[in-house]
Write a protein that binds this DNA or RNA. Structure first.
Lengths: 199, 199, 199, 199
DNA sequence: GGATAAGCGAGACGGTACGTCTCGTCTTTTG
DNA sequence: CAAAAGACGAGACGTACCGTCTCGCTTATCC
């Protein structure tokens, strides 16, 4: 896990190294936004960052490593969790946010990066960690609903989230149908109904 | 729309031209199966097909056009529809079939191809046609359930199919969790329950 | 011997290929002349030739192969043989010519190339051919002297030539002492005396 | 200032500095022996010596400087001078020794280093000193022969040595013909005859 | 049935990305 | 404070791929 670890390793902030890291990260985001994840090449990045490609290769080895690193780092900043007071309101707001996010170069880039990386031990681990965090973060919506008595205790949060989120990604990746606010509402309704019917 | 027209155009079946077309199509499927859509290059295909790259370029122009063509052709072959006598049985069998299909190099390859291609007018049209056909084909499961009285008339078939299929693709693309028979059953249950609760 | 053979192969003279070959050959000679064999890189050559490096790599593979090819070709052009009427005059003129040649960027470059290349089967063969030709060409000076009765029949021509030429190369490579006309004369005298004393 | 200069210049044998110097010298010799002068890189050396490349650069600046330094230092140990009692015997033994030496990685390396360094003031000076010493050392063979009456007084020793040595280097660098004992004998004979004929 | 057009095999070439390697410099940390 | 540690800028090297082009030959069609 050399490359990933390297980038995780503290590189004494403020030094030259940190500067390069920053510049490259920003450049990747910009390039991904402009060209799309799969069209971005190291030259595009090195040009934008004002950093030699050799330095990028030294640090990240391959384009995949670089892109994934940037995407994962960028996705540390998860979507803000809505807190509207009702489960349906939360889910609907969350779905709306996700739809908007996937329309973003960053969101779209991250999703595609996740979907298209070649698997390796490091990547599998990174992906698992990523989803672990994300789920833990989003489960709060369900937890709160349980606390409010909207859902029975023992509701499977992950399952619920998956039911909400999967159709959005399905359309994003495969049918590419445009999604709007009403679709988000519709999804929220579906999920809430399914969870209630379960009890 | 040159390329699409070209391939649609009849090239006197049995001639040398047809032979090339066939060989290339087969080679693309094989290559996609083995390497993944985004890793397949013209050399991989020309080698397998025993056809010169120049011939491929002459005919399809770019790799994307070629992939599109193969997609179109492949979209003819849909998954066999189960007919178990109950909605739950059908959905469960269908889900199981889809999971198995996506585990196949070919199925995986085609799904990723669908998600991977850069949009263009032809591609959008092709994708829409693809889903149109596929949905029309699969809706039968729902229609039959309605006919059997398992579901109320007016049930939205596409929505139901999406609810079934989306989580499978979600896991396939994004989380890459392995899916088994019990997951298929679980999904079928979810969908049936949701559809019933709706009425 | 792929590369070398390729270049020997007739490439439809006048075609694009021939043009590239020519341009590259000329560029190599120019670059070697200016920078020295061991300092010349493919970029230097491709720039000068107006030919993409990829084309050079496709054709010759490595820098060494390219140098070898140029050497072979260049070995066709030998130094003009003097014909002054006397052995001493011939040798002296020849030595003067060689000294001048080695002072030339091209001459210097080729000599260093000869000394610089890493041995391989092809290179050994090429070098042997080179010296074979060159000796056969230069021996005429001795042969003529024998015919004139200046030297006894059976004189070892190669040995004589070596005695003349070796000190020039020795100074050129190792001591780098400047050589002038009088040194050439001195050498000629030494060789003639040695050959006479032998009889 | 004297003291400070001492530390910079004189590297007190036994100190850490001396240890680095030694390790690097040894590493260079080993690397040259294994890879050849022109293929040796700083990394090869630093790896072998267990010394950081930056330390090498700090001390020697460029690879050429380093290699030349090592080669010249190593060549302090000149070839042992034979003393057989006759001029022919001495020259023959000397030639044999030189041939063997050039077959050595060190000998070959030194010769090539001398032939391929880029000229600079220091290098020119170093080379001149080198040959000065070497000639002064080897001239003894001629001096002794004069003393013995084998050669007339006033014989040009350098010229004689050059005549002996040049063909060996010529073959070493340019024709790369293998040389054996009989060639050495042959050379000695040629030189003795030429020197005698001169009188 | 012979002329002719259409396409194929063969093979470069210009462009360009990739990833490895080396050189020599520069900065950061440590003894 | 000087040496060690460790990037970094610069750039060569060689491989692979994309898409274009040219040439000669073989088919399949058309007069």
């Amino acid at each position: 896990m050399t490359a990933a670890e390297d980038t995780t390793t503290q590189r004494r902030p403020g030094g030259r190294a940190a500067k390069v890291t920053e510049a490259v990260h920003a450049a990747v985001l910009a390039a991904v936004a402009e060209l799309g994840v799969d069209k971005v090449g190291i030259p595009d990045i090195s040009r934008r960052a004002g950093v030699r490609d050799s330095s990028i290769y030294r640090r990240w080895g391959t384009r995949e490593n670089l892109v994934l690193d940037v995407m994962l780092t960028a996705s540390e900043r998860t979507l803000p969790l809505p807190d509207t007071g009702t489960l349906h309101g939360d889910l609907r707001a969350f779905a709306t946010g996700l739809i908007a996010y996937l329309d973003t170069p960053l969101g779209n880039g991250l999703a595609r990066a996740l979907a298209f990386v070649t698997d390796s031990d490091e990547i599998v681990a990174a992906r698992n960690t990523f989803w672990e965090k994300r789920n833990a973060h989003n489960e709060v919506m369900i937890t709160r609903a349980v606390a409010r008595g909207e859902l029975p205790p023992g509701t499977d949060a992950r399952l619920a989230l998956e039911t909400l989120v999967a159709p959005i990604h399905f359309r994003h990746f495969l049918t590419r149908q445009p999604m709007d606010e009403s679709f988000a509402a519709e999804l929220a309704t579906r999920v809430v109904r399914a969870l209630r019917a379960q009890g």
